[in-house]
Amino acid sequence: MIAILTFLCVHWFLSLFFHTFFLHRYASHQMYTTSKGWERFFYLCTWFFQGSSYLIPRAYGTMHRMHHEYSDTEHDPHSPHFFKDVWTMMVRTREIYNDFATRKIVVDEKFTKDPLPEWDALDRFGDHNITRLVFALGYIGFYVAFAPHWAYFLLLPIHFLIGPVQGAVVNWCGHKYGYSNFDNGDKSKNTSPWGILLMGELFQNNHHKFKDSPNFAKKWYEFDPSFAVMKMMHAVGIIKLKPVPVRAH
Rank of each mutant, 00 (worst) to 15 (best):
residue 203 F to M: 14
residue 11 H to N: 10
residue 37 G to C: 11
residue 129 N to V: 04
residue 85 D to L: 03
residue 188 S to C: 07
residue 69 E to R: 15
residue 33 T to N: 09
residue 13 F to C: 00
residue 31 M to L: 00
residue 142 F to I: 02
residue 48 F to Y: 14
residue 40 R to T: 15
residue 219 K to Y: 04
residue 44 L to R: 09
residue 3 A to D: 01
residue 212 D to S: 00
residue 236 V to C: 01
residue 177 Y to F: 13
residue 5 L to T: 14
residue 23 L to V: 01
residue 72 D to W: 04
residue 197 L to G: 12
residue 27 A to H: 08
residue 189 K to E: 09
residue 3 A to M: 09
residue 96 I to Q: 06
residue 30 Q to I: 07
residue 30 Q to C: 03
residue 148 P to N: 06
residue 107 V to E: 06
residue 248 A to S: 06
residue 244 V to R: 12
residue 79 S to V: 02
residue 150 W to M: 13
residue 221 Y to M: 07
residue 43 Y to N: 09
residue 171 N to I: 07
residue 153 F to D: 08
residue 39 E to A: 02
residue 148 P to E: 11
residue 7 F to T: 15
residue 45 C to Q: 03
residue 129 N to L: 00
residue 127 D to T: 06
residue 156 L to H: 05
residue 241 L to V: 01
residue 19 H to G: 05
residue 30 Q to K: 15
residue 130 I to E: 14
residue 232 M to G: 09
residue 216 F to Y: 12
residue 24 H to S: 14
residue 213 S to H: 00
residue 211 K to P: 15
residue 152 Y to H: 06
residue 173 C to K: 10
residue 41 F to Q: 01
residue 245 P to D: 09
residue 171 N to C: 04
residue 127 D to P: 00
residue 168 A to E: 05
residue 41 F to L: 13
residue 164 P to E: 03
residue 86 V to N: 07
residue 31 M to R: 05
residue 48 F to I: 15
residue 222 E to A: 06
residue 78 H to N: 11
residue 99 D to S: 05
residue 82 F to T: 13
residue 1 M to T: 07
residue 151 A to Q: 13
residue 181 N to R: 08
residue 25 R to F: 00
residue 203 F to E: 15
residue 99 D to I: 05
residue 249 H to R: 07
residue 230 M to E: 15
residue 8 L to A: 14
residue 51 G to V: 15
residue 72 D to T: 02
residue 178 G to N: 01
residue 43 Y to E: 11
residue 242 K to G: 11
residue 98 N to T: 06
residue 214 P to K: 11
residue 86 V to H: 01
residue 39 E to Y: 02
residue 238 I to F: 12
residue 92 R to M: 11
residue 215 N to M: 06
residue 212 D to C: 03
residue 189 K to Y: 02
residue 11 H to E: 12
residue 22 F to P: 08
residue 32 Y to S: 02
residue 24 H to V: 07
residue 223 F to P: 14
residue 211 K to W: 01
residue 56 I to N: 13
residue 243 P to D: 03
residue 189 K to R: 15
residue 2 I to Y: 06
residue 33 T to P: 02
residue 247 R to N: 07
residue 5 L to F: 03
residue 47 W to E: 12
residue 23 L to E: 05
residue 110 K to C: 10
residue 147 A to Y: 01
residue 16 L to H: 12
residue 22 F to I: 05
residue 97 Y to E: 10
residue 32 Y to D: 07
residue 102 T to H: 09
residue 28 S to K: 04
residue 150 W to P: 11
residue 17 F to R: 12
residue 226 S to D: 08
residue 134 V to P: 00
residue 113 K to N: 06
residue 99 D to H: 12
residue 227 F to C: 04
residue 112 T to R: 11
residue 17 F to Y: 12
residue 163 G to A: 08
residue 219 K to G: 03
residue 81 H to W: 07
residue 224 D to F: 02
residue 158 I to W: 01
residue 95 E to L: 10
residue 12 W to K: 10
residue 197 L to K: 13
residue 129 N to W: 11
residue 183 D to L: 05
residue 223 F to R: 15
residue 24 H to D: 14
residue 89 M to A: 03
residue 53 S to L: 02
residue 60 Y to T: 07
residue 240 K to M: 03
residue 55 L to F: 13
residue 83 F to C: 05
residue 248 A to W: 00
residue 139 Y to W: 10
residue 49 F to A: 10
residue 85 D to W: 04
residue 162 I to F: 05
residue 55 L to A: 13
residue 2 I to H: 12
residue 58 R to Y: 12
